[in-house]
Design a binder for these strands. Structure first.
Length: 317
DNA sequence: AACGATGACAACCGCACCTTC
DNA sequence: CGAAGGTGCGGTTGTCATCGT
């Protein structure tokens, strides 16, 4: 009660982040690593709330973030994970390491919820992604379908969890409080450089601020292409990621992320992801993961039946 | 071409939990 | 053990872009 705000409201800037602010934040994190967010505004000179800095980093600037439209597989995975886990966006995001919880949440709210609602309302609500709660089918049929759905989810997760696809990160689920703990080590995921993230951002900005075009007038390649162009028009011949590489002194490691993750010790890496544990880490299997890995699925039938109805109830609120 | 409606997404807010002293 | 500070999460809002009329 009466807890003071994380930062005093006066003099704290709100609203969209400018590229300059992004640069300040990224360069600070490159130097000091992510964490101690409270110190970030004062250390960087940013007139931003510490929470805002953290959010900006985790949702936008952090390496490895994939933006743009969701693939069909991702979509299905989200739907099924949402059915399994509920609105635990962080937990869901941990199974889609290239997506942020905010992204997934937004996507769910803007796309998937409507989609499912439509499916639910539709007389042909027999999609392979929507669990039908329709009374038009028998419970047996419904459970059978549900089993299929769950098997699909299980298969998808197994695929993703397989060791030859190290990009999938397993969180250490803590059922007691619903919180997830993450080890503080680098992962060998398909990280895109944050330089690219910022470069992408700047591409939109450059259009508005011609002076930058002079500064970055060297020829270059287009670094981002399939992002759905949300971040502004394609810029002509300005390789901003290259510019950032020169600023930050490292190359884009999207293409050589494994090298990056191997060569960077957790301590050394400014971009260690505080949210994502190592793939190879030992972790206690949660109920979900036990279930997922339990190929026999011998003893779960009754539990599954109960579980299924919970899912159903949750899915169609 | 102008304007309103709708959609998409970034960012904020408040609460809950964790950590430290 | 309790208080205070720090952090993470989920819900909500604000703003900009796109679409339809």
């Amino acid at each position: 009660m009466g807890r003071p705000p994380c930062c005093d409201k006066e003099g704290v800037k709100k609203g969209p982040w400018t590229p300059e602010e992004d640069i300040m934040l990224v360069s600070y994190i490159q130097e000091h690593g992510a964490g101690n967010w409270r110190a970030v505004p004062s250390k960087t000179g940013l007139r931003r709330c510490s929470k805002s800095c953290r959010l900006r980093w985790t949702n936008y600037l952090r390496p490895g973030i994939k933006r743009g439209s969701f693939t069909e597989d991702e979509e299905k995975m989200i739907i099924q994970l949402q059915a399994l886990l509920g609105n635990k966006w962080a937990a869901i995001a941990s199974y889609l390491p290239e997506r942020t919880d905010n992204d997934i949440k937004n996507y769910w709210n803007t796309h998937l919820r409507k989609k499912l609602k439509k499916l639910q309302e539709s007389p042909l609500c027999h999609s392979n992604i929507g669990f039908s709660s329709s009374h038009s089918i028998s419970r047996g049929q419904w459970e059978k379908r549900l089993q299929t759905d769950i098997n699909k989810a299980k298969q998808a997760l197994n695929d993703a969890l397989s060791l030859d696809k190290p990009k999938l990160i397993i969180p250490e689920l803590k059922p007691s409080n619903g919180y997830i703990s993450y080890s503080k080590t680098t992962q060998g995921s398909t990280y895109a450089s944050s330089t690219e993230n910022i470069a992408r951002l700047l591409k939109g900005w450059v259009k508005k601020t011609p002076k930058l075009e002079q500064a970055n007038s060297s020829s270059a390649n287009e670094t981002t292409s399939s992002e759905g162009d949300q971040s502004g028009p394609k810029d002509e011949g300005v390789d901003l990621s290259e510019a950032f590489e020169s600023i930050f002194g490292f190359e884009s490691f999207e293409s050589s992320n494994s090298e990056f993750s191997q060569s960077m010790s957790p301590e050394a890496s400014p971009f260690q992801d505080e949210r994502k544990p190592d793939v190879g880490d030992q972790f206690p299997l949660s109920m979900l993961e036990n279930w997922l890995f339990d190929e026999g699925l011998v003893q779960g039938k009754e539990e599954l039946a109960d579980f299924s109805f919970d899912i159903n109830a949750e899915l169609f609120v």
